[in-house]
């Protein structure tokens, strides 16, 4: 048995001999990574890296509509519920919409700059829809109201103050189509 173990040790030793040599004799490490035979590497520009540009087929379309007919409504920070103070404004808009049957209304939802872009766009979407829902509850047909969110991307006021941020957290109204002209 002892002899058998001896042999086994010997066999294992021999079979790993190559590896052992490579490690115990660092001077025999592989030579530098010569790329001989391959020739020089050609360095080229990556796609889209040079002067090429992509002209989008859809450019930023002109947006028509009349602004300033109705006052903005405002929201608390990170909130999208309609404030009592703004309900008279919305009732006023609802009755105007009822009188002007052909009019279409765009409700824009805006946020202050403190949040991050994507969450603010979602928040602006909720704000615009909260305004729409309130107007629909006042009997304005849903089909007459469009909504869009601009998140924090189109601030009304650009200073970093609470007063300014409060102005930017708003629902803004644009009258579309004939009635808006």
């Amino acid at each position: 048995m002892r002899r058998f173990c001896f042999f086994l040790v010997l066999i294992v030793f021999i079979s790993f001999g190559c590896k052992q040599r490579a490690v115990t004799q660092p001077e025999s490490q592989p030579p530098a990574q010569k790329e001989a035979g391959k020739g020089p590497e050609t360095v080229t520009e990556k796609k889209g890296g040079a002067g090429e540009s992509i002209t989008s087929k859809e450019m930023d379309g002109k947006t028509e509509g009349k602004e300033g007919m109705f006052a903005d409504v405002h929201f608390d920070f990170d909130k999208y519920d309609i404030k009592d103070a703004d309900k008279p404004t919305l009732k006023n808009i609802a009755s105007w919409m009822t009188k002007n049957g052909s009019a279409k209304l765009m409700v824009e939802g805006h946020c202050d700059e403190r949040g991050t872009n994507e969450y603010n766009l979602a928040l602006g979407d909720r704000r615009a829809k909260a305004v729409k829902d309130y107007l629909v509850s006042l009997a304005v047909p849903s089909a007459k109201i469009e909504t869009i969110s601009y998140g924090e991307e189109k601030p009304l006021c650009k200073e970093q103050t609470e007063e300014c941020w409060a102005k930017n957290r708003r629902g803004h109204f644009v009258v579309l189509g004939k009635a808006g002209k």
Partner: peptide
């Protein structure tokens, strides 16, 4: 450790 040749246009110095 490394020796290598490269070719490029003159205006691709940074790349």
């Amino acid at each position: 450790i490394l020796t290598k040749q490269y070719q490029s246009d003159k205006d691709l110095l940074r790349q």
